[in-house]
Nucleic acid binder design. Structure first.
Lengths: 249, 249
DNA sequence: CGATGTGAAAAACTTCACAGCT
DNA sequence: AGCTGTGAAGTTTTTCACATCG
Protein backbone atom coordinates (compact mmCIF):
# COMPACT_ATOMS: atom_id res chain seq x y z
CA UNK A 1 0.00 0.00 0.00
CA UNK A 2 2.75 2.32 0.85
CA UNK A 3 5.83 1.28 -1.01
CA UNK A 4 5.73 -1.03 -3.96
CA UNK A 5 8.99 -2.85 -3.45
CA UNK A 6 10.36 -2.61 -6.87
CA UNK A 7 13.89 -1.76 -7.78
CA UNK A 8 14.64 -3.73 -10.84
CA UNK A 9 15.02 -1.25 -13.60
CA UNK A 10 16.27 1.80 -11.81
CA UNK A 11 19.59 2.99 -10.57
CA UNK A 12 20.58 1.14 -7.44
CA UNK A 13 21.77 4.27 -5.67
CA UNK A 14 18.40 5.89 -6.07
CA UNK A 15 16.62 2.79 -4.94
CA UNK A 16 18.85 2.34 -1.95
CA UNK A 17 18.03 5.74 -0.63
CA UNK A 18 14.36 5.21 -1.08
CA UNK A 19 13.18 2.77 1.54
CA UNK A 20 15.48 0.45 3.36
CA UNK A 21 14.02 -0.87 6.59
CA UNK A 22 15.58 0.81 9.58
CA UNK A 23 16.54 -2.56 11.00
CA UNK A 24 18.42 -3.42 7.85
CA UNK A 25 20.41 -0.21 7.80
CA UNK A 26 21.82 -1.01 11.21
CA UNK A 27 23.02 -4.37 9.97
CA UNK A 28 24.48 -3.06 6.74
CA UNK A 29 27.03 -1.16 8.78
CA UNK A 30 28.02 -4.36 10.51
CA UNK A 31 28.41 -6.24 7.23
CA UNK A 32 30.54 -3.45 5.93
CA UNK A 33 33.00 -3.73 8.74
CA UNK A 34 33.26 -7.48 8.44
CA UNK A 35 33.79 -7.20 4.71
CA UNK A 36 36.64 -4.84 5.40
CA UNK A 37 38.27 -7.45 7.57
CA UNK A 38 37.73 -10.16 5.02
CA UNK A 39 39.27 -7.99 2.34
CA UNK A 40 42.31 -7.42 4.51
CA UNK A 41 42.66 -11.15 4.87
CA UNK A 42 42.80 -11.44 1.13
CA UNK A 43 39.36 -12.83 0.34
CA UNK A 44 37.79 -11.84 -2.93
CA UNK A 45 34.32 -13.21 -2.44
CA UNK A 46 32.02 -14.33 0.38
CA UNK A 47 28.85 -16.32 0.39
CA UNK A 48 25.85 -15.16 2.35
CA UNK A 49 26.31 -18.12 4.65
CA UNK A 50 29.87 -17.18 5.48
CA UNK A 51 29.16 -13.53 6.03
CA UNK A 52 26.06 -14.36 8.02
CA UNK A 53 27.98 -16.67 10.31
CA UNK A 54 30.68 -14.08 10.85
CA UNK A 55 28.20 -11.38 11.76
CA UNK A 56 25.81 -13.53 13.72
CA UNK A 57 22.86 -13.07 11.41
CA UNK A 58 20.49 -15.41 9.62
CA UNK A 59 21.68 -15.96 6.03
CA UNK A 60 18.30 -15.26 4.48
CA UNK A 61 18.04 -12.04 6.38
CA UNK A 62 21.46 -11.05 5.17
CA UNK A 63 20.53 -11.70 1.56
CA UNK A 64 17.36 -9.72 1.94
CA UNK A 65 19.27 -6.85 3.50
CA UNK A 66 21.68 -6.85 0.59
CA UNK A 67 18.86 -7.07 -1.89
CA UNK A 68 17.69 -3.65 -0.73
CA UNK A 69 20.82 -2.05 -2.03
CA UNK A 70 20.73 -3.82 -5.36
CA UNK A 71 21.83 -7.19 -6.58
CA UNK A 72 25.54 -7.56 -6.44
CA UNK A 73 25.82 -11.27 -5.85
CA UNK A 74 26.91 -13.94 -8.26
CA UNK A 75 24.74 -17.01 -8.08
CA UNK A 76 26.65 -20.13 -7.29
CA UNK A 77 29.58 -18.09 -6.04
CA UNK A 78 28.70 -15.37 -3.56
CA UNK A 79 29.41 -11.66 -3.37
CA UNK A 80 32.41 -9.91 -4.78
CA UNK A 81 33.74 -8.18 -1.71
CA UNK A 82 35.22 -5.08 -3.28
CA UNK A 83 32.10 -4.25 -5.22
CA UNK A 84 29.88 -4.89 -2.26
CA UNK A 85 31.97 -2.67 -0.03
CA UNK A 86 31.75 0.13 -2.54
CA UNK A 87 28.02 -0.21 -2.81
CA UNK A 88 27.54 -0.32 0.96
CA UNK A 89 29.65 2.75 1.46
CA UNK A 90 27.65 4.62 -1.08
CA UNK A 91 24.38 3.55 0.48
CA UNK A 92 25.45 4.52 3.96
CA UNK A 93 26.56 7.93 2.81
CA UNK A 94 30.19 7.19 3.55
CA UNK A 95 31.46 8.30 0.18
CA UNK A 96 31.92 11.75 1.49
CA UNK A 97 33.01 12.81 4.94
CA UNK A 98 30.55 13.73 7.65
CA UNK A 99 31.79 16.45 9.94
CA UNK A 100 30.96 15.62 13.54
CA UNK A 101 30.61 18.04 16.44
CA UNK A 102 30.98 16.75 19.97
CA UNK A 103 29.42 18.67 22.81
CA UNK A 104 30.55 17.86 26.33
CA UNK A 105 34.19 17.06 26.84
CA UNK A 106 33.95 15.64 30.32
CA UNK A 107 34.73 12.11 31.25
CA UNK A 108 32.98 10.27 28.48
CA UNK A 109 33.22 13.08 25.95
CA UNK A 110 36.96 13.22 26.29
CA UNK A 111 37.20 9.55 25.51
CA UNK A 112 34.94 9.96 22.50
CA UNK A 113 37.00 12.86 21.23
CA UNK A 114 40.06 10.65 21.32
CA UNK A 115 38.38 7.64 19.80
CA UNK A 116 40.26 7.04 16.61
CA UNK A 117 37.56 4.77 15.30
CA UNK A 118 35.66 7.84 14.14
CA UNK A 119 38.13 9.76 12.05
CA UNK A 120 39.41 6.57 10.52
CA UNK A 121 35.96 5.72 9.31
CA UNK A 122 34.89 8.90 7.65
CA UNK A 123 33.66 10.77 10.69
CA UNK A 124 36.24 13.41 11.53
CA UNK A 125 35.47 15.10 14.81
CA UNK A 126 35.57 18.64 13.60
CA UNK A 127 34.42 20.69 16.55
CA UNK A 128 34.42 20.31 20.32
CA UNK A 129 32.31 22.27 22.77
CA UNK A 130 31.89 22.59 26.49
CA UNK A 131 30.80 25.18 29.04
CA UNK A 132 33.50 24.51 31.61
CA UNK A 133 36.02 27.39 31.48
CA UNK A 134 38.77 24.94 32.44
CA UNK A 135 38.07 22.96 29.30
CA UNK A 136 37.32 25.70 26.81
CA UNK A 137 40.54 26.48 25.04
CA UNK A 138 42.36 23.21 25.53
CA UNK A 139 43.32 21.05 22.58
CA UNK A 140 42.23 17.47 22.16
CA UNK A 141 43.61 15.64 19.18
CA UNK A 142 44.50 18.96 17.63
CA UNK A 143 41.08 20.51 18.02
CA UNK A 144 40.31 23.42 20.31
CA UNK A 145 37.41 23.11 22.69
CA UNK A 146 35.07 26.02 22.09
CA UNK A 147 32.35 27.42 24.26
CA UNK A 148 28.90 26.00 23.74
CA UNK A 149 27.59 29.41 22.85
CA UNK A 150 29.65 29.30 19.67
CA UNK A 151 27.83 26.26 18.37
CA UNK A 152 25.79 28.12 15.74
CA UNK A 153 28.66 29.88 14.00
CA UNK A 154 31.16 27.08 14.20
CA UNK A 155 28.78 24.36 13.08
CA UNK A 156 27.75 26.41 10.09
CA UNK A 157 31.32 27.34 9.31
CA UNK A 158 32.59 23.78 9.39
CA UNK A 159 29.61 22.13 7.76
CA UNK A 160 28.76 19.91 10.69
CA UNK A 161 26.17 17.28 9.78
CA UNK A 162 26.20 15.10 12.89
CA UNK A 163 26.16 16.18 16.50
CA UNK A 164 27.17 14.04 19.47
CA UNK A 165 25.94 15.06 22.90
CA UNK A 166 27.94 13.83 25.85
CA UNK A 167 26.95 16.40 28.43
CA UNK A 168 25.37 15.79 31.81
CA UNK A 169 21.68 15.08 31.51
CA UNK A 170 20.32 18.48 32.50
CA UNK A 171 22.36 20.29 29.86
CA UNK A 172 21.48 18.02 26.99
CA UNK A 173 18.20 19.48 25.81
CA UNK A 174 19.61 22.99 25.62
CA UNK A 175 22.60 21.80 23.65
CA UNK A 176 20.34 19.83 21.40
CA UNK A 177 18.25 22.90 20.66
CA UNK A 178 21.39 24.79 19.75
CA UNK A 179 22.53 22.07 17.39
CA UNK A 180 19.16 21.79 15.75
CA UNK A 181 19.02 25.55 15.42
CA UNK A 182 22.36 25.37 13.66
CA UNK A 183 21.00 23.04 11.03
CA UNK A 184 22.24 19.75 12.46
CA UNK A 185 19.70 17.10 11.55
CA UNK A 186 21.27 13.96 13.03
CA UNK A 187 22.21 13.56 16.66
CA UNK A 188 23.84 10.84 18.68
CA UNK A 189 22.87 11.30 22.30
CA UNK A 190 24.86 9.85 25.18
CA UNK A 191 23.12 11.88 27.85
CA UNK A 192 20.57 10.04 29.96
CA UNK A 193 17.57 12.03 28.83
CA UNK A 194 15.01 11.77 26.08
CA UNK A 195 15.54 14.66 23.71
CA UNK A 196 12.59 16.49 22.23
CA UNK A 197 13.24 17.40 18.62
CA UNK A 198 11.24 18.38 15.56
CA UNK A 199 10.30 15.48 13.35
CA UNK A 200 12.89 16.13 10.67
CA UNK A 201 15.68 15.53 13.15
CA UNK A 202 16.98 12.00 13.68
CA UNK A 203 18.16 11.12 17.16
CA UNK A 204 19.88 7.94 18.21
CA UNK A 205 20.54 7.30 21.83
CA UNK A 206 23.33 5.38 23.48
CA UNK A 207 22.43 4.83 27.08
CA UNK A 208 24.94 2.87 29.08
CA UNK A 209 22.89 2.57 32.22
CA UNK A 210 19.96 1.24 30.22
CA UNK A 211 22.17 -1.33 28.53
CA UNK A 212 23.29 -2.60 31.90
CA UNK A 213 19.75 -2.73 33.18
CA UNK A 214 18.72 -4.82 30.22
CA UNK A 215 21.54 -7.20 31.01
CA UNK A 216 20.56 -7.22 34.67
CA UNK A 217 17.12 -8.35 33.61
CA UNK A 218 18.70 -11.25 31.80
CA UNK A 219 20.87 -12.10 34.77
CA UNK A 220 17.73 -12.36 36.86
CA UNK A 221 15.94 -14.37 34.22
CA UNK A 222 18.74 -16.85 33.79
CA UNK A 223 19.10 -17.22 37.49
CA UNK A 224 15.43 -18.03 37.80
CA UNK A 225 15.17 -20.11 34.71
CA UNK A 226 17.30 -22.91 35.91
CA UNK A 227 20.12 -23.80 38.18
CA UNK A 228 22.11 -24.68 35.12
CA UNK A 229 25.31 -24.74 37.08
CA UNK A 230 25.59 -28.30 35.89
CA UNK A 231 27.20 -27.41 32.62
CA UNK A 232 30.27 -25.60 33.66
CA UNK A 233 31.53 -25.37 30.19
CA UNK A 234 35.01 -24.07 30.49
CA UNK A 235 36.45 -24.02 27.09
CA UNK A 236 38.78 -21.15 27.54
CA UNK A 237 40.55 -20.74 24.30
CA UNK A 238 43.57 -18.65 24.87
CA UNK A 239 42.98 -16.41 21.92
CA UNK A 240 45.69 -13.93 22.53
CA UNK A 241 45.55 -10.88 20.39
CA UNK A 242 47.51 -10.37 17.25
CA UNK A 243 47.46 -7.54 14.82
CA UNK A 244 46.46 -4.11 15.86
CA UNK A 245 43.01 -3.15 14.75
CA UNK A 246 42.96 0.25 16.20
CA UNK A 247 40.16 1.35 18.33
CA UNK A 248 41.83 3.12 21.13
CA UNK A 249 45.12 4.88 20.74
CA UNK B 1 18.07 -19.07 23.65
CA UNK B 2 15.50 -21.17 25.32
CA UNK B 3 12.06 -19.95 24.58
CA UNK B 4 9.67 -20.67 27.40
CA UNK B 5 6.38 -20.52 25.61
CA UNK B 6 3.10 -19.21 26.84
CA UNK B 7 2.09 -17.19 29.81
CA UNK B 8 -1.01 -17.02 31.82
CA UNK B 9 -2.69 -15.26 34.68
CA UNK B 10 -0.37 -15.87 37.55
CA UNK B 11 1.78 -14.14 40.07
CA UNK B 12 3.18 -10.98 38.61
CA UNK B 13 6.73 -11.49 39.75
CA UNK B 14 6.91 -14.92 38.23
CA UNK B 15 5.18 -13.79 35.09
CA UNK B 16 7.43 -10.82 34.69
CA UNK B 17 10.49 -12.97 34.56
CA UNK B 18 8.96 -15.33 32.10
CA UNK B 19 8.39 -13.60 28.82
CA UNK B 20 8.54 -9.88 28.42
CA UNK B 21 9.23 -8.86 24.85
CA UNK B 22 12.82 -7.81 24.45
CA UNK B 23 11.73 -4.47 23.03
CA UNK B 24 9.67 -3.77 26.12
CA UNK B 25 12.48 -4.54 28.52
CA UNK B 26 14.58 -1.86 26.89
CA UNK B 27 11.85 0.68 27.45
CA UNK B 28 11.14 -0.34 31.02
CA UNK B 29 14.59 0.86 31.94
CA UNK B 30 13.81 4.21 30.39
CA UNK B 31 10.53 4.53 32.26
CA UNK B 32 12.31 3.70 35.46
CA UNK B 33 14.74 6.54 35.08
CA UNK B 34 12.04 9.04 34.26
CA UNK B 35 10.01 7.87 37.24
CA UNK B 36 13.02 8.53 39.42
CA UNK B 37 13.14 12.09 38.17
CA UNK B 38 9.45 12.58 38.71
CA UNK B 39 9.73 11.25 42.24
CA UNK B 40 12.51 13.72 42.95
CA UNK B 41 10.27 16.48 41.75
CA UNK B 42 7.73 15.43 44.30
CA UNK B 43 5.12 13.73 42.11
CA UNK B 44 3.19 10.87 43.60
CA UNK B 45 1.45 9.59 40.52
CA UNK B 46 1.71 9.76 36.73
CA UNK B 47 -0.68 8.94 33.98
CA UNK B 48 0.39 6.87 31.04
CA UNK B 49 -0.01 9.92 28.84
CA UNK B 50 2.35 11.99 30.93
CA UNK B 51 4.98 9.32 31.25
CA UNK B 52 4.67 8.49 27.59
CA UNK B 53 5.18 12.09 26.55
CA UNK B 54 8.21 12.41 28.80
CA UNK B 55 9.83 9.31 27.39
CA UNK B 56 8.83 9.79 23.79
CA UNK B 57 6.68 6.71 23.54
CA UNK B 58 3.15 5.98 22.47
CA UNK B 59 0.85 5.87 25.52
CA UNK B 60 -0.78 2.60 24.54
CA UNK B 61 2.59 1.03 24.10
CA UNK B 62 3.63 2.23 27.51
CA UNK B 63 0.55 0.76 29.13
CA UNK B 64 1.13 -2.51 27.39
CA UNK B 65 4.74 -2.55 28.51
CA UNK B 66 3.66 -1.99 32.09
CA UNK B 67 1.00 -4.61 31.81
CA UNK B 68 3.71 -7.21 31.31
CA UNK B 69 5.00 -6.62 34.80
CA UNK B 70 1.58 -6.71 36.41
CA UNK B 71 -1.15 -4.18 36.89
CA UNK B 72 -0.08 -1.43 39.16
CA UNK B 73 -2.15 1.41 37.79
CA UNK B 74 -5.22 3.00 39.29
CA UNK B 75 -7.94 3.61 36.76
CA UNK B 76 -9.00 7.16 36.52
CA UNK B 77 -5.81 8.28 38.24
CA UNK B 78 -2.61 6.82 36.86
CA UNK B 79 0.30 4.96 38.38
CA UNK B 80 1.57 5.36 41.87
CA UNK B 81 5.18 6.20 41.25
CA UNK B 82 6.78 4.62 44.28
CA UNK B 83 5.07 1.30 43.78
CA UNK B 84 5.83 1.27 40.10
CA UNK B 85 9.48 2.02 40.71
CA UNK B 86 9.72 -0.82 43.14
CA UNK B 87 8.09 -3.21 40.74
CA UNK B 88 10.28 -2.13 37.85
CA UNK B 89 13.41 -2.52 39.91
CA UNK B 90 12.41 -5.97 40.88
CA UNK B 91 11.62 -6.93 37.31
CA UNK B 92 14.89 -5.59 36.02
CA UNK B 93 16.85 -7.42 38.66
CA UNK B 94 17.97 -4.22 40.31
CA UNK B 95 16.90 -5.19 43.78
CA UNK B 96 20.29 -6.61 44.42
CA UNK B 97 23.60 -5.33 43.14
CA UNK B 98 25.20 -6.66 40.00
CA UNK B 99 28.96 -6.74 40.19
CA UNK B 100 30.46 -5.53 36.94
CA UNK B 101 33.90 -6.31 35.57
CA UNK B 102 35.42 -4.02 32.99
CA UNK B 103 38.11 -5.34 30.69
CA UNK B 104 40.18 -2.83 28.76
CA UNK B 105 41.11 0.34 30.56
CA UNK B 106 42.33 2.31 27.56
CA UNK B 107 40.75 5.46 26.33
CA UNK B 108 37.11 4.47 26.40
CA UNK B 109 37.47 1.95 29.19
CA UNK B 110 38.98 4.53 31.46
CA UNK B 111 36.02 6.79 30.89
CA UNK B 112 33.62 3.95 31.58
CA UNK B 113 35.42 3.07 34.78
CA UNK B 114 34.96 6.62 35.95
CA UNK B 115 31.38 6.94 34.83
CA UNK B 116 29.44 7.53 37.99
CA UNK B 117 26.19 6.60 36.31
CA UNK B 118 26.96 2.94 36.97
CA UNK B 119 27.73 2.68 40.64
CA UNK B 120 24.90 5.02 41.47
CA UNK B 121 22.44 2.76 39.74
CA UNK B 122 23.23 -0.59 41.22
CA UNK B 123 26.12 -1.56 39.01
CA UNK B 124 29.30 -1.18 41.02
CA UNK B 125 32.35 -1.64 38.86
CA UNK B 126 34.04 -4.26 40.93
CA UNK B 127 37.01 -5.36 38.88
CA UNK B 128 39.19 -3.81 36.20
CA UNK B 129 41.47 -5.66 33.82
CA UNK B 130 43.98 -4.87 31.12
CA UNK B 131 47.07 -6.40 29.57
CA UNK B 132 49.15 -3.24 29.37
CA UNK B 133 51.85 -3.38 32.06
CA UNK B 134 51.65 0.40 32.38
CA UNK B 135 48.03 0.11 33.40
CA UNK B 136 48.07 -3.02 35.52
CA UNK B 137 48.49 -1.92 39.09
CA UNK B 138 47.12 1.59 38.85
CA UNK B 139 44.02 2.62 40.75
CA UNK B 140 40.93 4.01 39.13
CA UNK B 141 38.16 5.11 41.45
CA UNK B 142 39.73 3.06 44.18
CA UNK B 143 39.97 -0.15 42.20
CA UNK B 144 43.20 -1.75 41.13
CA UNK B 145 43.63 -2.72 37.50
CA UNK B 146 44.51 -6.41 37.34
CA UNK B 147 46.02 -8.42 34.54
CA UNK B 148 43.58 -10.07 32.18
CA UNK B 149 44.97 -13.47 33.06
CA UNK B 150 43.47 -13.07 36.54
CA UNK B 151 39.95 -12.83 35.20
CA UNK B 152 38.87 -16.31 36.27
CA UNK B 153 39.88 -16.09 39.91
CA UNK B 154 38.87 -12.52 40.48
CA UNK B 155 35.50 -12.78 38.78
CA UNK B 156 34.64 -15.84 40.81
CA UNK B 157 35.91 -14.27 43.99
CA UNK B 158 33.91 -11.08 43.56
CA UNK B 159 30.78 -12.61 42.16
CA UNK B 160 30.87 -10.77 38.86
CA UNK B 161 27.66 -11.18 36.89
CA UNK B 162 28.18 -8.70 34.10
CA UNK B 163 31.27 -8.14 31.98
CA UNK B 164 32.02 -5.08 29.91
CA UNK B 165 34.57 -5.39 27.13
CA UNK B 166 36.28 -2.21 26.02
CA UNK B 167 39.42 -3.65 24.49
CA UNK B 168 40.68 -3.18 20.96
CA UNK B 169 38.82 -5.35 18.52
CA UNK B 170 41.35 -8.13 18.11
CA UNK B 171 41.56 -8.79 21.82
CA UNK B 172 37.85 -8.92 22.44
CA UNK B 173 37.05 -12.52 21.59
CA UNK B 174 39.79 -13.87 23.81
CA UNK B 175 38.65 -11.74 26.70
CA UNK B 176 35.09 -12.81 26.08
CA UNK B 177 36.07 -16.47 26.25
CA UNK B 178 37.80 -15.84 29.56
CA UNK B 179 34.74 -14.12 30.99
CA UNK B 180 32.41 -16.82 29.81
CA UNK B 181 34.74 -19.45 31.19
CA UNK B 182 34.54 -17.66 34.52
CA UNK B 183 30.79 -17.99 34.62
CA UNK B 184 29.84 -14.54 33.37
CA UNK B 185 26.61 -14.89 31.42
CA UNK B 186 25.92 -11.32 30.37
CA UNK B 187 28.30 -9.14 28.41
CA UNK B 188 28.25 -5.58 27.19
CA UNK B 189 30.61 -5.31 24.26
CA UNK B 190 32.12 -2.02 23.11
CA UNK B 191 34.70 -3.58 20.83
CA UNK B 192 33.98 -3.45 17.12
CA UNK B 193 33.65 -7.17 16.61
CA UNK B 194 30.86 -9.70 16.72
CA UNK B 195 31.51 -12.00 19.64
CA UNK B 196 30.88 -15.70 19.32
CA UNK B 197 29.37 -17.08 22.50
CA UNK B 198 27.46 -20.16 23.60
CA UNK B 199 23.71 -19.72 23.49
CA UNK B 200 23.21 -19.27 27.22
CA UNK B 201 25.29 -16.09 27.16
CA UNK B 202 23.61 -12.79 26.45
CA UNK B 203 25.64 -10.20 24.59
CA UNK B 204 24.68 -6.63 23.95
CA UNK B 205 26.79 -4.51 21.71
CA UNK B 206 27.42 -0.80 21.76
CA UNK B 207 29.09 0.13 18.53
CA UNK B 208 29.85 3.79 18.13
CA UNK B 209 31.04 3.61 14.56
CA UNK B 210 27.88 1.78 13.56
CA UNK B 211 25.72 4.37 15.25
CA UNK B 212 27.42 7.09 13.26
CA UNK B 213 27.04 5.15 10.05
CA UNK B 214 23.34 4.78 10.65
CA UNK B 215 23.14 8.53 11.12
CA UNK B 216 25.22 9.09 8.02
CA UNK B 217 22.65 7.13 6.09
CA UNK B 218 19.99 9.47 7.36
CA UNK B 219 22.07 12.49 6.48
CA UNK B 220 22.29 11.20 2.95
CA UNK B 221 18.61 10.42 2.83
CA UNK B 222 17.53 13.80 4.13
CA UNK B 223 19.92 15.52 1.82
CA UNK B 224 18.40 13.75 -1.12
CA UNK B 225 14.86 14.26 -0.04
CA UNK B 226 15.24 17.93 0.70
CA UNK B 227 16.96 19.26 -2.35
CA UNK B 228 16.55 16.76 -5.06
CA UNK B 229 19.12 18.35 -7.22
CA UNK B 230 21.64 15.87 -8.43
CA UNK B 231 23.78 14.64 -5.64
CA UNK B 232 22.27 11.46 -6.83
CA UNK B 233 24.70 11.16 -9.63
CA UNK B 234 27.46 9.08 -8.28
CA UNK B 235 30.40 11.37 -8.62
CA UNK B 236 32.60 10.14 -5.88
CA UNK B 237 35.00 12.98 -5.59
CA UNK B 238 37.80 12.42 -3.26
CA UNK B 239 38.23 15.29 -0.88
CA UNK B 240 35.63 17.92 -1.46
CA UNK B 241 34.90 18.07 2.20
CA UNK B 242 34.70 21.72 2.92
CA UNK B 243 31.23 22.60 1.89
CA UNK B 244 31.35 26.24 2.71
CA UNK B 245 28.11 27.75 1.72
CA UNK B 246 26.68 24.86 3.40
CA UNK B 247 23.92 22.52 3.77
CA UNK B 248 21.26 24.69 5.18
CA UNK B 249 20.15 28.28 5.57
C1' DC C 1 25.50 -28.09 -8.74
C1' DG C 2 25.50 -24.15 -5.48
C1' DA C 3 24.31 -19.75 -4.00
C1' DT C 4 21.46 -15.79 -4.91
C1' DG C 5 17.09 -13.24 -4.84
C1' DT C 6 12.40 -13.18 -3.42
C1' DG C 7 7.39 -14.27 -2.85
C1' DA C 8 4.84 -15.88 0.84
C1' DA C 9 4.18 -17.43 5.64
C1' DA C 10 5.30 -16.57 10.43
C1' DA C 11 6.59 -13.96 14.22
C1' DA C 12 7.30 -9.77 16.65
C1' DC C 13 6.02 -5.42 17.59
C1' DT C 14 3.03 -1.25 17.47
C1' DT C 15 -1.17 1.12 17.44
C1' DC C 16 -6.10 1.50 17.78
C1' DA C 17 -10.19 1.75 20.18
C1' DC C 18 -13.05 0.70 23.75
C1' DA C 19 -14.79 -1.97 27.75
C1' DG C 20 -14.48 -1.56 32.49
C1' DC C 21 -12.82 0.04 36.88
C1' DT C 22 -12.23 3.96 40.39
C1' DA D 1 -15.19 11.86 33.99
C1' DG D 2 -10.88 9.95 33.38
C1' DC D 3 -7.50 6.56 32.82
C1' DT D 4 -6.07 1.83 32.83
C1' DG D 5 -5.78 -2.76 30.67
C1' DT D 6 -6.33 -5.41 26.60
C1' DG D 7 -8.40 -7.85 22.40
C1' DA D 8 -7.99 -7.02 17.79
C1' DA D 9 -6.22 -4.76 13.79
C1' DG D 10 -2.26 -3.05 11.54
C1' DT D 11 2.60 -2.68 10.56
C1' DT D 12 7.28 -4.12 10.41
C1' DT D 13 10.73 -7.58 10.61
C1' DT D 14 12.22 -12.28 10.40
C1' DT D 15 12.26 -16.70 8.51
C1' DC D 16 11.18 -20.22 5.18
C1' DA D 17 11.52 -22.47 0.93
C1' DC D 18 12.27 -22.62 -3.73
C1' DA D 19 12.53 -20.97 -8.49
C1' DT D 20 16.32 -19.05 -10.91
C1' DC D 21 20.56 -18.08 -12.70
C1' DG D 22 25.69 -18.30 -13.30
Amino acid sequence: MTKPPQAGSEDAAAASLRSIPEASVARLAVYLRMLGELAEQGSETVSSDELAAATGVNPAKLRKDLSYIGSYGIRGVGYEIAALVRQLERTLGLDHLQAVALVGVGNLGHALAGYSGFGGRGFPVTALFDVDPDLVGIHINGIIVEHVRSIPEICAERGVTIGMIATPGPAAQGVCDLLVGSGVRCILNFAPVVLQVPPEVEVRKVDLAVELQILAFHVARKHLAGQDTATLDSRVNGHAANGSGGMLP
